[in-house]
Amino acid sequence: MASEIKQLQVSRRFVNRYLLAVIALGLIHHVDHALRWDHSGWPIRGDTHVPGAGIVTPFTYSLLIYPVLLSMFFVGNKVYRIVAGLAPLALVLWAHLTIEPVPHIYRTWADNRVPGGTFEGFPNLLNLGSPAVGGLAVGLLFVLGLALAVLPFLIWREEPASRGTAAGAASRRAS
């Protein structure tokens, strides 16, 4: 099995498609943040009549991960791509182990109220109390975390650029 992993090679095209899936999962997770409302911020919470609503928060800064992820389509440097793939994983782990733990995510949906913090007692924006939706939100977070953990490995195992070209194929046949 270890030798199979050592020999695993994936195409840049596969990695790019995987990256698109990761971006889609991230966007869905950010929509979940926005719908829970308590762990979002500008530009989602623009209500100035609610204290703390229109402020820049960690959520606002987390949106900056999308330009980083999108840059991976255009930058060929493998070290950059691996580090850019590790950054969102580190941020997701940090945010959901410190600022907004998993039980908080679940309870906000299951009970239709924020379980603690500045916005304790506020409902989610759908005004929906559903343990199933809470489970889906937590499941999404875990799938996103797993997908982010796999991304740097896939980049590391990416085929060299010459493999997909006619010149690269000719050099492999010659050897």
Rank of each mutant, 00 (worst) to 15 (best):
Y61R: 05
T98H: 01
G41K: 03
Y80N: 05
V68E: 07
L64N: 08
D47V: 06
K78W: 00
G116E: 12
A90V: 15
L69D: 02
L89S: 03
D47S: 08
I55N: 12
I44S: 11
V68F: 12
H96N: 13
Y106G: 01
I105P: 00
P51F: 05
V75N: 08
T48Y: 01
N112H: 11
R45K: 15
L70S: 10
T118R: 15
H96W: 11
V79S: 10
L91W: 12
W109C: 00
M72K: 09
V50W: 07
G46S: 01
R107M: 13
I65D: 04
T118K: 14
L91H: 12
G41V: 03
L89V: 01
I99W: 10
V114P: 01
A84V: 09
P43F: 02
G46I: 15
A95N: 04
R81Q: 09
N112E: 05
M72V: 06
V114N: 09
L91P: 00
I82H: 13
P101S: 05
V114G: 06
N112V: 12
N77Q: 08
R113I: 03
P103V: 13
R113A: 15
P115V: 06
F74N: 04
V50L: 14
F59G: 08
A90Y: 04
F74D: 06
A90D: 03
T48G: 02
L69F: 09
G41W: 02
I82R: 13
S71Q: 12
